[in-house]
């Protein structure tokens, strides 16, 4: 067991004029995660500390934070493994703050919804499952693991400079459905991403791929979408 200092960014717009940092010392033992340390602070030191969490097993995407200068899921970050006596916990950068580590995800989810994140089918539904070959399923392996934690969204300079840019997460989801062999959207989904607040605002900086705590590659998906727009328009292909 060792005492670790958590340097936490605090902000309550009802009281504070500007964000500030507060230090909490937490006795860390075993495989305690940053999220568990935050629970400890909330229970024993300061009940007003606000943060988002849900599944505690890195599949819900609620607890993405900026921990020691890196995009991480608090529930996935083992404090002892970081090997430092002091852990800085901040909300995701460049996003609108609600309170402490909680930020306003409304825009993020409006953009997610804009790309129609569901399978679009036009043909009659078969009586059995819609089958897919292993090769077709393989194409979904990367994008399907996205948990919408918004780390990529927060790391993208194009998001910082254009508030209506869809961002890497929504575009990766667009890719996930467009590349799906069961999807029959044709050009129905295209108007959402095939524009300058969509894929063409991506300058292949690849911060998103670096930030992703699930080690996904949104850039790859966005590049596929750009190519797909060219294939559809100029070569008459379906995808």
């Amino acid at each position: 067991m060792s005492d670790i200092t958590f340097h936490v960014k605090r902000f309550d717009p009802a009281v504070d004029k500007a964000p500030y940092y507060q230090d909490f010392v937490v006795p860390v033992e075993g495989s305690m995660t940053v999220l568990e340390a935050l629970f400890d602070i909330q229970e024993k030191q300061d009940g007003s500390l606000a943060f988002r969490y849900c599944c505690r097993s890195s599949i819900c995407g609620s607890c993405a934070m900026y921990i020691n200068g890196r995009y991480r899921l608090a529930c996935q970050t083992n404090v002892a493994h970081m090997g430092v006596p002091r852990v800085t916990v901040e909300p995701l950068p460049h996003v609108p703050l609600v309170r402490d580590l909680v930020w306003d995800m409304e825009d993020f989810f409006v953009k997610y919804e804009a790309i129609k994140p569901w399978l679009i089918r036009n043909s009659a539904l078969p009586d059995t499952e819609i089958t897919q070959s292993p090769a077709e399923r393989l194409k979904l392996n990367m994008p399907i693991d996205c948990i919408l934690c918004a780390a990529c969204y927060s790391s993208c300079p194009s998001v910082w400079t254009e508030e209506n840019y869809l961002g890497p997460a929504a575009l990766l989801k667009a890719y996930r459905f467009e590349v799906d062999s069961r999807d029959e959207a044709g050009r129905e989904r295209m108007p959402s991403w095939d524009n300058e607040r969509g894929v063409y605002r991506c300058h292949t900086i690849a911060n998103c791929s670096e930030a992703c705590p699930k080690e996904l590659n949104p850039t790859e998906g966005i590049q596929w979408l750009k190519g797909s727009a060219v294939r559809r328009r100029l070569l008459g292909r379906k995808k």
């Binding site: 409006v110 524009n195 300058e196 727009a229």
Partner: peptide, 13 residues
């Protein structure tokens, strides 16, 4: 916000 995001100028390719 919702309307702004959903109404986007087309073109760009």
């Amino acid at each position: 916000m919702r309307a702004e995001v959903l109404a986007r100028e087309q073109g760009g390719m």
